Amino acid sequence: MAAKKDPALPDIAVRPPNLPEMWHSTVNWFSIHALQILVAVGVGVVIYLTLATLRQFGSRLNGKPGDTLGLPHVIGRAIARTTHFFMALVAARLVVSYANPPQMVLKTVIFLFTIAAVFQAAIWAREIILGLIERKTVGDEGHGETLANAMGLIRVLVTFGLFAIAAVVVLDNLGVNVTGLVAGLGIGGIAIGLAAQGIFSDLFAALSIIFDKPFRRGEVITYDQTTARVEKIGLKSTRLRAMTGEKKVISNANLLQKEITSLHTLEQRRVTFSLGIIYQTPDEKADTIPSILKHIVEGEGFHFVNAGLVRFGASSLDFELNFDVPDPDRHDYFQSRHRVGLAIWQRFKAEGIEFAYPTQTSFTAAPDGRTIMPYPDADPVDERARRFT
C-alpha cells in the first residue's frame, strides 16, 4: 500500500547527487570559461601574495621577545596570526564571480569564506585582547609567577568565549536555530558562576591586584592590626610575612575589602617615643632632656624632628620624641626603634634621670585637718643606755 503524500508539504524531489553530471558540468565550465578561470587564478594568486606580505609585515611589527610591548606590537601580533586558509579563501571569494562558476561552486566558496572569516576574526580579537592585557602588566616584575598563571587562565577563558561565539555565528549562517543553544550556554554559565562564586571572586581579586597594582610582591603593607611584607600573590590567596615572623595567608577578595596602607613608597617613616620622668627631677636636668634626645637620635644616624614636655601626668612629667627613619624599606623599623630606645635608657641612667612609674603617696591628718605623722613622737634613746640594754 503506497503512503499518502501530505498536501501541506512542498513537492521537492530529493535525489542523490549525480556525480557524472557534476563532472560533466565542471568540464564544460573549464572548457567554456578557461580564459576567465586563468585570469581569476592569476589575480587570486596576486591577492594571496599581497596578504602574505602584509602578514610578514605584521610579524616584523610584532618585534622580538623582550621588546617593549606597545600598541603597534599588539596590532602586529594580531596580523601575524592570519591563517593561510583565510588568505586563500579571501582571494577565492574576490575572484570567483569573475569566472562565472556553477552555482554549487559559488555557494561552496561563499560557505567556506564565511567560516574562515568568522574564525579568523575570533583569532584577531583574541590576540588583541591578550596583547592589551599583557601591555597593561608589562614591566611588573613583582607579579611574574602570578601573572603567568593568570595569563594562562585568561587565555583559556578568552579563547573559549570567542570561539564559542564564532561557532554560534557559523551555525546561524548555516540556518541552524541557535536560540536553544545560546539559552543553554547562558544557563550553564550562570550555574557554574553560582557554584564557584568564591573561587571566581578571589580570581578576579587577584587580577585586580595584578592590573591595578595596589601593592606588589616585596612591599610592606598594613591592614587591620597587621603589618607584613608581601611574599607571594596567588590566584586564590596572598601570602605575607608579619614583622614578628608569622606567615599570614588571606584570600584576595578579603584583602581588597580592607583599608591597605603601603609603606613601600615612604621616603622616611616617623617614630614616636613617649617618655615619663619623675617629678623629683632637677630643673636643669629636665631642661636638657630635648638636647640629649636629639644627640642620641642623630648619633644613631636618624633624622631628629622634635622633642619636649607635652603633659603633666598623674605620676610623671611626660616628654615626647619624634624622629624619622630614612628608607624604611631597607632599614628595619622595629630594629631602629629598639636601638634608639636602648640608647635613651642607657643615657638617662648615666645622667641620673629616673623614669617614672605609677606611685601613690598617702598623708594622715588630725580631726582638724592638720597633717600629722602616722605614728606618735618617741623620745630619743640615750646612746649609753642603748649599749647597756
Rank of each mutant, 00 (worst) to 15 (best):
V220H: 04
A167F: 10
F57R: 14
F160T: 12
V41R: 05
G58M: 06
A88K: 07
R384F: 09
A378R: 15
E259L: 07
L38C: 13
F111R: 10
N252S: 02
T83Y: 00
F334A: 14
F111C: 04
T281V: 11
T227H: 02
A8K: 15
I110A: 13
M22K: 11
I296Y: 08
V182Y: 03
R270V: 13
G313W: 03
T82E: 00
V168I: 09
I250V: 12
L293E: 04
L157I: 10
V96S: 10
E300Y: 00
I192V: 08
R337Y: 04
V118E: 04
D324T: 04
I296Q: 06
M1P: 13
F211K: 06
T108E: 12
Q197H: 12
H84Q: 01
A166K: 08
G352D: 03
T371N: 09
D202K: 01
G301W: 02
L235W: 00
A40M: 06
G58I: 04
V178M: 11
V96N: 08
I192K: 00
F334N: 14
E267G: 14
A205W: 00
S316E: 15
E145I: 03
P102C: 07
S208W: 09
I75E: 02
I233W: 00
V43M: 09
D318N: 14
A166Q: 08
P358G: 07
A196P: 00
F111G: 09
Q103S: 13
K258W: 00
V96R: 02
S31K: 12
K4N: 09
I250G: 00
E259F: 05
T83L: 00
E284V: 06
S201D: 12
T108M: 14
A3P: 12
T50N: 02
R347E: 15
L38R: 03
S251L: 12
T82A: 04
I292Y: 09
N306H: 11
Q36G: 10
F119P: 02
K236V: 07
F163G: 01
H33C: 03
T179P: 00
T361F: 15
P282W: 04
A164S: 14
Q268M: 05
V156G: 09
E231M: 12
P282C: 07
T389F: 15
V45C: 09
G189D: 01
V41Q: 06
T361N: 14
I289F: 10
V249K: 14
S262V: 06
I123G: 04
G180H: 05
E298V: 11
L130Q: 07
V109H: 06
R311A: 15
F163V: 06
G152T: 12
H143K: 03
I210N: 02
V249A: 06
G152H: 10
K285L: 14
L69K: 08
R216G: 06
G44R: 01
S201H: 08
A80P: 00
V109M: 06
A148L: 09
